[in-house]
């Protein structure tokens, strides 16, 4: 029943789209990281209106399906851009825009939400006595953050970051709905051509399993090298 020949023949073809998956992951994270740091800072500092907006953002993004967010981004942004370009008289065809950009944005929405939570909780996890001891040896607020709080928060945050990265990798598999051909998208396309969907899904399955396995090893390695000081506990 299982056509193993088609399955083996197309494994490389599907795996060849791993770079797109990686590109989507990295692109989304590059957008999400600076925003999540700003958002987490806003939450911790309790800046009147901004903190509320950040919280609203978090609850909307976490409270709606990623797939729906992607559909909306894919429908809304071209529409906005089109309106914008037409009204400013620029002759730019929005269909020339590589859809991977919608992918970056759509995936970064939820990545930002989860990273914000990770950054916020890891900073708050550092005992406030650390900050006070820093002040009492004469450190400024910024020095306390740079020398004491952020390094400690990082060791708490890394495992959470690891989980977020894996989640982001998984959510890139939805990008095919925005006509970005990555691993999942390629599996679907070949599945359609050969009508051997199950075989192609199994191929994609293996590509993800192996890729995420390597990513997890890498994260563990980074964690180890950063959390040196806790290993003695």
């Amino acid at each position: 029943m299982l056509d193993t020949k088609t399955m083996v023949d197309n494994l490389i073809d599907i795996a060849a789209y791993l770079p797109v998956t990686i590109k989507l992951t990295i692109g989304a994270l590059l957008i999400a990281i600076p925003f999540s740091i700003l958002f987490a800072a806003a939450e911790i500092k309790r800046i009147p209106v901004i903190t509320r907006l950040v919280r609203l953002y978090l609850s909307i993004i976490k409270g709606t399906p990623v797939l729906l967010q992607m559909f909306m981004i894919y429908a809304l942004i071209p529409f906005w851009l089109n309106t914008f370009f037409t009204s400013t008289g620029k002759n730019i065809n929005i269909y020339d825009i590589d859809p991977i950009w919608y992918g970056y944005i759509a995936i970064s929405l939820s990545a930002t939400a989860f990273l914000t939570e990770a950054v916020r909780s890891s900073i708050l996890s550092v005992d406030k006595g650390q900050k006070e001891a820093g002040y009492m040896v004469g450190l400024s607020k910024w020095q306390v953050y740079k020398e004491i709080i952020l390094p400690q928060a990082l060791t708490v945050a890394l495992p959470i970051f690891g989980n977020v990265i894996v989640d982001v990798i998984k959510s890139t598999s939805l990008a095919f709905t925005m006509s970005v051909t990555e691993v999942m998208g390629r599996a679907k396309i070949i599945g359609g051509m050969t009508t051997r969907y199950l075989e192609m899904y199994i191929d994609a399955f293996f590509v993800y399993v192996i890729f995420i396995f390597f990513v997890e090893i890498m994260i563990k390695y980074i964690e180890k090298s950063v959390t040196r000081y806790k290993s003695a506990r």
């Binding site: 005992d127 006595g129 650390q130 001891a133 820093g134 020398e147 004491i148 400690q152 000081y229 806790k230």
Partner: peptide, 11 residues
């Protein structure tokens, strides 16, 4: 401090 508050990330 009562609970020392040594910087945990420093020797």
């Amino acid at each position: 401090f009562q609970n020392y508050n040594l910087f945990a990330n420093k020797t």
